[in-house]
Structures are given as structure tokens and as C-alpha cells.
């Protein structure tokens, strides 16, 4: 009986500690000092995200033909740098600018949207929270004029 009481007290103590920890973590999350890069989990998560993104593209007939001449390794490296930069992470983007990359391809709105959907699926599979996903998308959206119809 005494032992059960001890367990109960331990349980209550742990519960309070967990609540405290959750409160602490959520106050961290709402801290405006924290970058989006940190919020999604830093470099490791970004790399997983881009790997998942490549897999989504590889199984998407709508856009795969556009990547026929792409070097997957280079795409992966530059994409990670680019997303890191967009998320205010500690990276330098060493790739070509978006206009250079897409010039002459005459990409249409539907193809652009297909890539957006592939990225959404990749973010889901990476376990990135919807609120962070939407911040990433919001930062990428202004690039659209540098991608489509050129």
C-alpha cells in the first residue's frame, strides 16, 4: 500500500515535471528569436526533407520528365542549401539563381503546383508540423515568377 502511494506520488511528480517541460518547450517554440530552421529541427531534418522530396519527384509522372537531365546529387546539395537559407539557417547558397535554373523550360502553373504538392507530401513524411510547413511554403511562394513561364 505504501509502495503504491509512493508510485502515485512519483507519477504525479513526473506528470507535473512533464507539464512543466511541455510549457517550457512551447514557450521556446513561440519565442520569436528561434529561426524557422531551428523550429523544424535543423540540418538533419532538412536533409531528410530534401531526400523525401526527391523520392516524391521520382514517383511523380507529372514532373519527372523535367528532371531527366538533372544531376540528383547536385540538386540535393543545392536544394538543402536553398531551403536552409530560406529558413534562416546558417548556410550559404552556392547554386545558380532560380531564373538561370528554369530559363527556357517554359514551366506552367500546373507543373509548379505539382512540385508544391510533392514538397507538401515530403514535409508530411518528414514529420514537419503544418504550421512550419506553411511558413516554408510562404517563403518559397515568391520564387514562382522566377520559375514559371520563362
Amino acid at each position: 500500500m505504501k509502495q503504491s502511494f509512493g508510485h502515485l506520488m512519483l507519477f504525479i511528480k513526473n506528470t507535473f515535471l512533464s507539464i512543466g517541460l511541455v510549457t517550457f518547450l512551447s514557450s521556446c517554440a513561440s519565442n520569436s528569436q528561434q529561426s524557422l530552421y531551428d523550429e523544424i529541427g535543423g540540418q538533419a531534418v532538412l536533409e531528410t526533407l530534401v531526400d523525401n522530396f526527391i523520392m516524391e519527384i521520382a514517383s511523380d509522372n507529372r514532373v519527372l520528365p523535367r528532371f531527366l537531365d538533372s544531376n540528383v546529387n547536385r540538386f540535393r546539395e543545392k536544394m538543402i542549401e536553398h531551403m536552409c537559407l530560406l529558413a534562416d539557417g546558417p548556410c550559404i547558397y552556392t547554386g545558380d539563381d532560380m531564373v538561370q535554373v528554369h530559363a527556357g523550360m517554359n514551366i506552367n502553373s500546373a507543373e509548379f503546383n505539382a512540385i508544391v504538392e510533392d514538397l507538401m507530401s515530403a514535409m508530411d513524411k518528414t514529420g514537419i508540423a503544418l504550421s512550419s510547413q506553411n511558413q516554408i511554403l510562404e517563403r518559397m511562394a515568391p520564387l514562382r515568377p522566377q520559375v514559371i513561364g520563362i
Binding site: 509522372n61 507529372r62 514532373v63 519527372l64 520528365p65 523535367r66 506552367n108 502553373s109 500546373a110 507543373e111 503546383n113 505539382a114 508544391v116 504538392e117
Partner: peptide, 10 residues
């Protein structure tokens, strides 16, 4: 174009 339907986002 390889995309011929359902071009808009869900």
C-alpha cells in the same frame, strides 16, 4: 506537357 489534368492544389 506531361501534366494534363488536376493542375490545381487540393
Amino acid at each position: 506537357q506531361p501534366v494534363n489534368r488536376d493542375g490545381k492544389i487540393l
